[in-house]
């Protein structure tokens, strides 16, 4: 008589040929999680061995990485029989599925995810600062347009208007307040402007803090990639790729155009449109030193070395980042 061994999320079962339950070894709450995770990974669990001691030979219904010379079956008829037999236990299985899914979500958080969120967060912060300062300038320019015009850098502008008053700022520009196009504001009209400026300044501080955190994180976690691509560009590339694993598996030609997907797909759909030469890689400091006509080649060389660097990091090899960067410089800046 044929017997089947099947572990669900709630118990290990032994079925006979007509799929009646011959034996059931139920899991307790803790086992449901531990065994559920093990079953998903294709491992044997103690209750299965317990059942096999009593019932042997037996056909295993399921997936195991180590087959251990047992016979296996995933025939339609077998799974159908087992499913019919366990129809009444549906809600128990569903409850156990929730427990396992929760643990899997918990365990899925990797250091990649932290880099991804930090990198995206940094970008969003930069956007937010731009937006706030744009509004701030518009407002402040009613009061003192000349200073706003003379300081083009957003962060310097915010610092300047917070540390000095209008008189001082105009004196620096050698303009008297009579000449200035700005109107005079009552103190209570000026307060909200300064409050907004303070908010902008704290956003800038937060951005700087996140930047140094991310740089440090990248340099310790991905030393090779950070050395070749600079930590912040490395984070951006990694975020675009999705994970360390995905990026390590990418050919260098894909890394070259990471961030230029729109242009790339336009080209793939219509070959008369030229393909992009570079994506995020254009932000690498070396690219600005290369003449414009040679940027395509530069992007190719750089992507090549980046793809080597990420693979060294992925397989935890020795540190070769600086050597790789030197090779890039030799090829491009001679």
């Amino acid at each position: 008589m044929k017997k089947y061994l099947y572990s669900s999320a709630i118990s290990t079962f032994v079925f006979d040929e007509a799929f009646r339950v011959l034996m059931e070894v139920p899991f307790d709450e803790k086992q449901k999680v531990a065994y559920g995770l093990a079953l998903g990974n294709g491992e044997w669990i103690p209750t299965e061995e317990q059942a096999m001691k009593v019932h042997s030979p037996i056909v295993v219904v399921g997936f195991k990485t180590d087959k251990k010379n047992h016979s296996f079956s995933t025939d339609d008829a077998v799974i159908s029989g087992i499913s019919k037999s366990l129809r009444g236990r549906l809600f128990e299985i569903a409850a156990a599925d929730i427990l396992v899914a929760k643990q899997l979500v918990k365990r899925s958080v990797s250091s990649d995810d932290i880099v991804l969120e930090a990198s995206r967060g940094l970008k969003e912060l930069e956007k937010a600062i731009n937006m706030v300062v744009k509004r701030l300038r518009g407002w402040y320019e009613l009061y003192n347009p000349e200073t706003s015009r003379s300081i083009s850098d957003n962060e310097q502008f915010v610092d300047a208007i917070l540390s000095k008053d209008k008189e001082e700022l105009l004196k620096e520009l050698k303009i008297s307040s009579e000449e200035s196009m700005g109107s005079s504001f009552a103190p209570h009209d000026l307060t909200p402007i300064m409050e907004l400026a303070q908010q902008a300044q704290s956003l800038v501080k937060a951005k700087e803090a996140q930047k140094s955190y991310l740089s440090h994180l990248m340099a310790t976690m991905y030393p090779n990639l950070s050395a070749v691509a600079t930590p912040l560009l490395a984070a951006e590339l990694l975020a675009q790729a999705g994970s360390l694993h995905k990026m390590a598996m990418m050919p260098s030609s894909t890394i070259q155009v990471l961030g230029a997907e729109k242009a790339l797909f336009k080209h793939l759909k219509n070959r008369s449109v030229k393909p992009p030469k570079h994506g995020h890689i254009i932000n690498h400091p070396i690219m600005s030193k290369v003449p414009f006509e040679k940027r395509g080649r530069a992007a190719r060389v750089l992507a090549d070395k980046i793809s080597i660097a990420i693979r060294i990091d992925y397989f935890k090899g020795e540190f070769k980042g600086e050597q790789l960067l030197k090779e890039v410089e030799e090829m491009l800046l001679k």
């Binding site: 559920g36 156990a96 599925d97 899914a101 979500v105």
Partner: peptide, 15 residues
Amino acid sequence: PVLADARYPEKYLPF
């Protein structure tokens, strides 16, 4: 809910 890769159906046979 089952957190699994649909490419390998045998892996979520228990769930």
